[in-house]
Design a protein around this nucleic acid. Sequence first.
DNA 1: TGTTATAATAGTAACCATTCCTGTTATTGG
DNA 2: CCAATAACAGGAATGGTTACTATTATAACA
Lengths: 138, 138
Amino acid sequence: MAQQKQSRMTQQRLVILEEVRKLKTHPTASDVHDIVRERLPRISLGTVYRNLDLLSESGEIWRLATSGTQYRFDGNTENHYHITCVVCGRVDDFEGPTVEIGGASPAETLGYEIVDHRLEFLGKCPQCRDGSSDEAST
Amino acid sequence: MAQQKQSRMTQQRLVILEEVRKLKTHPTASDVHDIVRERLPRISLGTVYRNLDLLSESGEIWRLATSGTQYRFDGNTENHYHITCVVCGRVDDFEGPTVEIGGASPAETLGYEIVDHRLEFLGKCPQCRDGSSDEAST
DNA sequence: TGTTATAATAGTAACCATTCCTGTTATTGG
DNA sequence: CCAATAACAGGAATGGTTACTATTATAACA
C-alpha cells in the first residue's frame, strides 16, 4: 500500500503562505521571492517555486496563468475572475461577470469532460488608459 | 508623414500562412516549424516565429495564450473559444454550447477600459478520459 | 528531552520557449 | 535588369522555470 509522503511545515513555507495571503496583488514567483526575503534573507528562488507549487496543488493558494509570460499567484481562493492590463501587465480581481454555459454535456463538447474554465479580461488599467487627463495616484 | 514600412510576401511567409490555415489543430511554433520544413527544409525557427508574430499582428491568424508553457496558433479567425486538455495539453475548438458572459458593467471594472476577453475551457479529451492512464508524458 | 530518518533547503546548473543579433539572400519598385 | 532593403539562416542570448546535490532542520518516537 502506497505510503503518503509526509509534509513538514517549514518556516519558509509558512512565511510564503502568510505573505501571499496578505497581498491583495497577484505577484509573480519573483515578486514573492523579493517580499519573503525581507523576513528570510537567505531563502532561494527554487524554494519559493517549490512551495508556491505545493501550496497551489493543495488548494491553499491559486496559480494563475494569465496573459503574459509568467505565472502569478493569488492568496484569495474564492471563486473570482481577473483582468490584466495589456500595457503594464498588472492583474486585478474582477468579480462582476458570470459565465453561463448552455448545457455543456460531453456529447456537445467533442467528447471532452469539462473540469474548469478560465475567464480573463484584457484592458487598460486606470494608470495606463490615458496618462494625460485623469492622473491616478499610484 | 510617417512612411509605412513595406512588407514582402516571401516564400517562407506564404507557406507558413498556408499551412497554418490548412490545419484544424492548434500548433505551437515548433509544430509549425516541423510542418513547414517539409516544404522548405532550410527554414529557421526564428523565421517561423517572426512570421507567426507578423501574421498575428495583421490579424491573418490568431496567437493563443492557452494554459501551458507555449503559444499556439490558429488559422481560423472566426470568433470562437478553445478547450485545453489538462492531461495531454491538446487544444480543440469549443463547439456547441453557447456561452453567455454577463454582469461586466463599466462600474464594476475598477476603472479599466476593457478591450477583450479570453475564455478557455479546461477538460479531459476523449483519449485521456477513458484511456488506462497510459498517455505519453508530454 | 535526545536520536534519527528523511523532507526540505540553498545554491547552482540545466532546460526550453522565445527573442535578438549579424552577415547574407532575395523581393520588388523603378 | 538594378539597387535598396526587407527578410532570411544560423546561432547566441535571454528569462522564467525546473532539476540536481550536498547540507540542514523538522518531527516521530524512544
